[in-house]
């Protein structure tokens, strides 16, 4: 067991965990943050995506492929922490409005991937949207409504 310190959604935590425990399981089991989902468990689907800052700025990562120890001293944002208060984040609002979520399993990852995309490209082209979301799989929506949600979110956040 190893003791690690990390900040999740602005809350500092000190935890004693097996160092190879997946960050995904640490979030869901030790911190009860079950908004981060598991689907493939091998980096292919993006359901477990979070934003991780290990010192060079927040980056989109798949938490199923990160050992807990590699998040020591890091700052994380999960879907629970995207909107600072009880209101929805504009990206969440646009997914709601444009029908970008159905069963919801892929949605937290889709929304964080969108957040990362809009940070890099506030006015993304169609190609940038497709590339930015290429690591996020959805079995329900057929993607068109997700792309529409992202276009709406880009317009909204540009305002």
């Amino acid at each position: 067991m190893t003791t690690i310190h990390l900040t999740v959604n602005n809350q500092p935590h000190t935890l004693t965990v097996p160092p190879m425990k997946r960050l995904l399981d640490l979030l869901r089991e030790d911190l009860s943050l079950t908004g981060t989902k598991e689907a493939c468990g091998e980096g292919e689907c993006g359901a477990c995506a979070i934003l991780l800052d290990t010192g060079s700025g927040p980056e989109l990562v798949n938490s199923c492929l990160i050992p807990a120890l590699q998040a020591d001293n890091a700052t994380l944002t999960t879907i629970e922490g995207l909107a600072p208060d009880a209101a929805l984040h504009p990206i969440q609002q646009s997914f709601l409005q444009a029908g970008g979520a159905q069963c919801g399993i892929c949605t937290p990852g889709m929304i964080l991937a969108t957040h990362h995309l809009l940070t890099q490209h506030p006015n993304p082209t169609e190609a940038q949207i497709r590339e930015g979301l290429s690591g996020n799989l959805c079995r329900c929506t057929g993607y068109m409504r997700i792309f529409e949600s992202i276009r709406q979110a880009a317009t909204e956040t540009a305002r």
């Binding site: 190879m20 997946r22 468990g41 091998e42 980096g43 290990t54 199923c64 492929l65 990160i66 050992p67 120890l69 590699q70 020591d72």
Partner: peptide, 26 residues
């Protein structure tokens, strides 16, 4: 172990040969 995108997939599949890792990503 650096970014872990090979080794953690091997871990998920239960085919990691050895049991002690040194993280170099930091």
């Amino acid at each position: 172990i650096a970014g872990g995108t090979e080794l953690m997939v091997a871990l998920a599949a239960g085919r990691l040969p050895r049991h002690s890792f040194l993280s170099i990503s930091h």
